[in-house]
Amino acid sequence: MEVVKSRSFTAERAWGSKQIANMQGITTKLHWTDQPYKWHINDGEEVFVVLDGVVDMHYRVNGAEEIAVLEVGDIFFASVGTEHVAHPRGEVRVLVVESEGSV
């Protein structure tokens, strides 16, 4: 049993994380960042939940770039093959659920 106070979580580097759980190969991690990630496609599906701050989530649909503004409580679901990159507006904390070892 563990209680995690996400708003006080920080990391030594952008996209640093704390693993909350690993349930049969599906990880749940709390991330802190103040820098964009990189364009990527996950090995499987990904659930991305904004816990603190605002994230501009860039993604491509049929080669065209789109942007979703994600605020606290918003969820982005990346299905298999979804190319995407998160751009935080300042400091953010996000919860990411994905296959273990995914990009």
Rank of each mutant, 00 (worst) to 15 (best):
R60A: 14
Q35V: 03
Q19R: 15
Q19I: 10
E66W: 10
I67M: 15
E2K: 05
A64D: 15
V92Q: 03
S6K: 03
D52Q: 15
G44F: 04
V96W: 00
W32N: 11
R7E: 10
E71I: 01
E46C: 08
K5P: 02
Q19K: 14
A78K: 01
P88I: 01
L70E: 06
W39H: 09
V103A: 11
R13F: 06
D34E: 13
D52E: 14
E12F: 00
L95Q: 11
R13M: 07
K29E: 15
G25Y: 00
R89H: 03
I26W: 08
Y59R: 11
Q35L: 07
G81Y: 00
T82V: 08
A14I: 01
V69A: 08
S102F: 00
E65T: 09
T10Y: 02
H40N: 13
E12R: 08
S8R: 06
V80Q: 10
K29S: 15
K5M: 11
R7G: 03
T27D: 12
V94I: 12
I41A: 14
F76S: 02
V47W: 07
H31G: 08
L30Q: 09
V97Y: 09
I75P: 00
A78Y: 03
G44W: 06
E2Q: 02
Q19H: 09
D52W: 06
G81S: 04
T27C: 07
K5T: 12
D52M: 15
S79G: 12
V50F: 06
F77I: 08
S102G: 13
P36T: 12
V92R: 03
T33H: 09
H31K: 10
R89S: 00
G90P: 03
V54M: 05
A86G: 02
